[in-house]
């Protein structure tokens, strides 16, 4: 397999950490959109961020509605990432669950949630993946579900490993699960990453640190939740997601809807 040849990075983690610290100090106390799109420590962002501020638009009809997904789109078995193979995947079994809410704390019901992640060794099933960690024939790392009447999602999976990614010398991503979410309106669309508590790589990672305020960064970190463990079987993490952006007027669900 041939991959595009890239110049090897020359910057060290110390160089990157200094850049990260400077940007965080400069943005302290400023109310800026999070994450920053112009964030040079993430080298790939340098030519891929708009230089102009977004223009304001009053959302029109189509933008106040979200695309509709449902149970014909997703098989309930797609929420279990551990059953793709004929045997059990290797790694620490976890349940990840939480609620998808709008900015007023109301549930985002019956909506699509998609996830993808590396295996327990930090390897993705992807043709451009170059990390020489083992693939797991029993783990594809892709899941989907539809939120329930309380906006809740739930996945059964294994804990992903950290992986190196070539941004600078010996750059490692903290363990994470990619999440794709649709809200109650087009404007609320979100793709993000969920992290695990107390990861020692947080301080070193330009992608996580592109969110320059600690309270906003904290919103991406799941909480260990003993109530989500399956006794004698698996660990549990909870993580709620808040989607903001204008949507059409909220109508209380009818009794029969719930």
């Amino acid at each position: 397999m041939t991959a595009p040849t890239k110049k090897p990075p020359v910057e060290t983690q110390a160089d990157l950490s200094a850049e990260i610290a400077k940007i965080e100090a400069d943005s302290e106390g400023r109310n800026v959109r999070q994450p920053l799109l112009d964030y040079p420590p993430y080298r790939s962002s340098i030519l891929r961020h708009p230089t102009k501020d977004p223009r304001h638009a009053d959302p029109e009809t189509i933008e106040l509605w979200a695309p509709c997904f449902g149970h014909s789109d997703v098989d309930p078995l797609e929420a279990d990432l551990t059953i793709a193979g004929s045997n059990e995947p290797i790694g620490e079994r976890i349940t990840v669950s939480g609620r998808v809410l709008d900015g007023e704390g109301r549930p985002v019901r019956d909506q699509l949630v998609e996830i993808w992640q590396a295996n327990s060794a930090g390897r993705y099933i992807h043709k451009h993946e170059q990390h020489p960690a083992p693939l797991d024939p029993n783990f594809t790392g892709v899941g989907r579900c539809i939120t329930d009447s309380e906006g809740r999602y739930r996945f059964q999976t294994i804990k992903p490993g950290p992986y190196p990614w070539g941004n600078h010398i010996n750059a490692w991503r903290p363990a994470h699960i990619h999440f794709s979410l649709f809200g109650r309106a087009f404007t609320q669309r979100l793709i993000t990453q969920m992290y695990f508590p107390s990861d020692p790589l947080f301080a070193l990672d330009p992608i996580y640190q592109s969110i320059t305020s600690q309270k906003d960064r904290d919103a991406l970190v799941a909480t260990y939740d003993h109530d989500l463990t399956i006794p004698e079987y698996s660990m549990g993490y909870s993580w709620d997601i808040v989607l903001t952006g204008p949507s059409r007027t909220w109508t209380e669900p009818e009794e029969g809807d719930l």
Binding site: K127, H128, V142, S210, A219, T244
Partner: peptide, 20 residues
């Protein structure tokens, strides 16, 4: 209950086997 809007993060390089 947290009402801090959840920040976005890059889609990254490896969505190709998951989202299409």
């Amino acid at each position: 209950m947290s009402t801090i809007p959840t920040p976005g993060q890059t889609i990254g390089p490896f969505f190709g086997y998951a989202l299409p």
